[in-house]
Amino acid sequence: MTTIRPRITVNLEPVTALQLKRISELTGNSQSSMISEVLEQAAPVFERLIVVLEAAEKAKAQVKEQSIERLSDAQARIEAQLGLVLDDFDRATAPLLVEVEKVRRRRRTGAQAGARTAAAATPPTPISNRGVRYDPKATKDIAQSPSRVRPKALKVGSKSRGGE
């Protein structure tokens, strides 16, 4: 059988369920009708609670909007102050930048230009993990002097496979 009144399921604590069952037995009313009567009597309280909660939601939205506006204003003021600081910094460093640009734009003399192109033609020697660098002069000197070259020492008592 269908009903026009909505149904809900309520979970109760065991103690509350026992109390409700006992009252139902003593009064002869069903548990659902007793709960329905209690909730109907609390309807004015529910109405007031709804009004308060709706007002709280509205206030919450207004506070959020006001906070956003205030934060945007604060950000604009900070950015304006930062802009003033950057302007002061630019004014203070302008003479230094002018001098740097003058030094950068100077023409190189012939000797300097030749030295720069020669240095640019030979790539720098990479540094090894041990700090040893390739030095063509030292390598050439070592290769030409036979006294520094020592023959390899022969191994004494070396093992050989398969024979003696």
Rank of each mutant, 00 (worst) to 15 (best):
G83R: 10
G83W: 05
G83E: 08
L84I: 05
L84P: 00
L84H: 09
V85T: 15
L86W: 05
L86K: 15
L86M: 14
L86A: 13
L86I: 12
D87F: 01
D88Y: 05
D88L: 06
D88V: 04
D88S: 11
D88E: 13
F89Y: 14
F89P: 00
D90A: 12
D90Q: 10
D90C: 03
R91V: 02
A92C: 11
A92S: 12
A92I: 01
A94I: 03
A94Y: 02
P95G: 08
L96F: 08
L96N: 02
L96K: 04
L96H: 06
L97E: 06
V98K: 10
V98M: 11
E99F: 08
E99K: 15
E99I: 13
E99Y: 10
V100I: 10
V100C: 10
V100G: 06
E101Y: 12
E101F: 11
E101N: 13
K102Y: 04
K102R: 14
K102Q: 09
V103W: 13
V103T: 15
R104C: 04
R104H: 06
R105A: 11
R105D: 11
R105L: 09
R106W: 00
R106T: 05
R106F: 00
R107I: 01
R107F: 01
R107C: 04
R108H: 12
T109Y: 02
T109P: 00
G110T: 04
G110V: 01
G110P: 01
G110W: 01
A111G: 05
A111L: 07
Q112M: 05
Q112L: 04
Q112V: 03
A113N: 06
A113L: 08
